[in-house]
Amino acid sequence: MDQIYIEYKETLAALKPRFRRDFIDEIDWEESLLFILGSRGVGKTTLMLQYIKEKFGTSSTALYISMDDLSLSNYTLLDLAKRHAQNGGTHLFVDEIHKYNNWSQELKNIRDKIKELRVVASGSSILDIQKGNADLSRRSVVYTLHGLSFREYLNIELKLNLPIISLTDIVSNHEIIVPQLLEQFKPLQHFATYLKYGYFPFYLEGIKNYHHKLGNVLNVVLEQDMALIEGVDLTKIPKIRKLIYLLSTQVPYQPNITKLAEALETDRITLLNYLNSLQKASVLTLVRLNGKLYTQLTKPDKIFLQNTNLLYLSQSNVNIGTLMETFFANQIG
């Protein structure tokens, strides 16, 4: 355990974030068990480490571990939690929880047997806490972290402190709100860059290789997360890639599921399952009209890529209508 604590302190010391997300303050970190779910690359690890650094400093009462760390292979999650609690630990932060086979049962055991220990677990947005070996839905609180909104992007780039404004306020009070905002910045000056590069915080590492990194993120989601969590056959991944490409190069429309299935050489039910899995993975947004009864096997009324940055993986010039609709669906979704 000593080496685990040493590596944790080194990880914490290396953290030098360039911004702080408001989402940190929205979380009730004192819940017995809470999950932070989200797409790869949205900043779940940074968020947890920032909170640890702010709240605990260098104290060993908190411990951060990542379940994709080979050095933890000789320990069970329950064993790590017990040892941390015996050492005076009060909070355990577990990253990449979906990489650990028996995660749901052991988290249940930790919550039931080590009641004084607070556990925060992060994982893929695909993760369904009701589908593990132990149903944790009544024992935990789930938060979802999204990529950067345009407001957050502007706050980072321009060092502003723009507040959240609801859609209702914008519609009702836009004549007051817009002039106030225009005094601080020119939205269109930064909008195109955000649409292409600004959704994932790793754009701060540089935009030259941004889409290459984004492509790698998408590959990991398809080849690892969907295979591991959703049970998607790896031999079917090329068809799912083709599906994403077809959707990204077409103007959003009411989909013809039969024709789309024919283009992928698959059946209707399989295609609908792919679409729902991709929505869980934060790759797609499936829009359904209010007032209708939907199941997983009901076709959506419209399909968008989850964010505008993904559109640029397959093309350099994106239809402006597609960009605007995708942006709107993402920001209010």
Rank of each mutant, 00 (worst) to 15 (best):
I170C: 05
F202Q: 14
T249V: 15
N216E: 15
T76D: 13
N133Y: 14
L222K: 03
R288A: 02
K55Q: 14
V221D: 01
R268V: 00
D25F: 04
M1D: 08
L313G: 03
K113R: 13
F327C: 10
Q86R: 13
R18M: 09
L47Y: 11
I237G: 03
I332D: 04
R139C: 07
F185T: 07
W103Y: 10
L214H: 06
L218A: 12
D225H: 06
A192N: 14
Y253T: 15
G215W: 08
L188R: 13
I27V: 12
I114T: 09
S314Y: 15
V178C: 00
L313Y: 10
G89H: 01
Q254M: 10
F191R: 05
S125T: 10
S137Q: 12
L92R: 02
T46V: 12
H211C: 06
S122M: 04
L158C: 08
N216T: 08
I240P: 01
E106H: 01
A261R: 10
N256H: 08
E175T: 15
S66F: 05
E106Q: 11
I114M: 06
Y75W: 15
E223G: 00
S71V: 12
L305A: 03
T45P: 05
I229S: 11
V232I: 15
L246W: 03
I110R: 00
L145D: 12
L77Q: 07
K55E: 15
D233N: 14
R111S: 14
S66G: 13
R241F: 02
